[in-house]
């Protein structure tokens, strides 16, 4: 049986990288005595799949991992049991039943939504203009240096939705394995026309949702349509 677990990550733990969070979660699952399934072999490991790695420094309202369990007995307590093993800043938000044939969390990810809290004073006044300019442009090109030369990308194609809400920029972007758009890339492009070069610490990125695509190709949260167990 497969379960999908939703959790949040705020505060100092945002500096803990993806691999370390995975190790932390593995220990939490073990300490919570969740009947997680282990691989065979000399050093058995838990069968887990994390949705989309969260960058160092980024906070999140909605992260996901999938785990396989050997039994659903007591599954109404899984959320509480796991949450009791979390540290400051991490909370388990829900445990959901995943149909057997579903793709795992990582393979399902197609989009991610973010909101941005701007810290830098001189950038704050341009928030509205930056988003407007982006919306009104036909193309917004971004360049990335790779091994095979400079790669050009039209960010307009990777951004599904963008807007401003109570002084925060929010957007939903491509997060698929082939086309993941880093929020920082978009932020740089938004403010470049105003001569503002943003540093990663000038603003706080908060991921608000990780999504798959529904039948129409529209973003829906990874737990959309799943039965919540606890």
């Amino acid at each position: 049986m497969k379960l999908r677990v939703r959790f949040s990550k705020f505060g100092p733990v945002k500096f803990i990288g993806h691999l370390d969070i995975m190790r932390f979660v593995q220990k939490a699952i073990k300490a919570a005595k969740i009947p997680v399934k282990y691989s065979e072999g000399f050093s058995p490991h838990q069968i887990l799949s994390f949705a989309a790695p969260l960058g160092v420094g980024v906070e999140s309202e909605s992260e996901y991992f999938d785990m396989e369990v050997t039994s659903l007995d007591g599954c109404e307590l899984f959320k509480g049991d796991l949450d009791a093993q979390m540290c400051e800043g991490m909370s388990i938000l829900g445990v959901y039943l995943l149909p057997e044939k579903s793709k795992n969390a990582m393979a399902s990810v197609a989009f991610a939504s973010y909101r941005i809290v701007m810290h830098r004073e001189d950038a704050k006044e341009y928030i509205g203009k930056a988003v407007e300019t982006f919306k009104n442009s036909e193309h917004v090109l971004s360049y990335k240096e790779t091994k095979s030369g400079v790669q050009e990308r039209d960010l307009k194609e990777a951004v599904l939705e963008i807007g401003v809400n109570s002084k925060e920029i929010y957007f939903t972007v491509d997060a698929s394995s082939g086309g993941n758009l880093k929020p920082a890339t978009l932020m740089n492009a938004l403010f470049k026309p105003f001569g503002i070069e943003l540093k990663p610490w000038d603003y706080q990125i908060i991921r608000t949702e990780v999504c798959r695509a529904d039948e129409q190709g529209e973003p829906v949260p990874l737990i959309y349509g799943l039965e919540q167990l606890s």
């Binding site: 505060g11 100092p12 733990v13 500096f15 803990i16 990288g17 370390d20 932390f24 220990k27 160092v56 420094g57 093993q85 979390m86 540290c87 400051e88 800043g89 540093k199 990663p200 610490w201 706080q204």
Partner: peptide, 18 residues
């Protein structure tokens, strides 16, 4: 954040471990 995002292994300095 500015310092923590620029140094090696910021997790060494934040505490808050379980």
């Amino acid at each position: 954040d500015e310092i923590l995002l620029q140094i090696d292994k910021p997790a060494r300095y934040i505490g808050g471990e379980k």
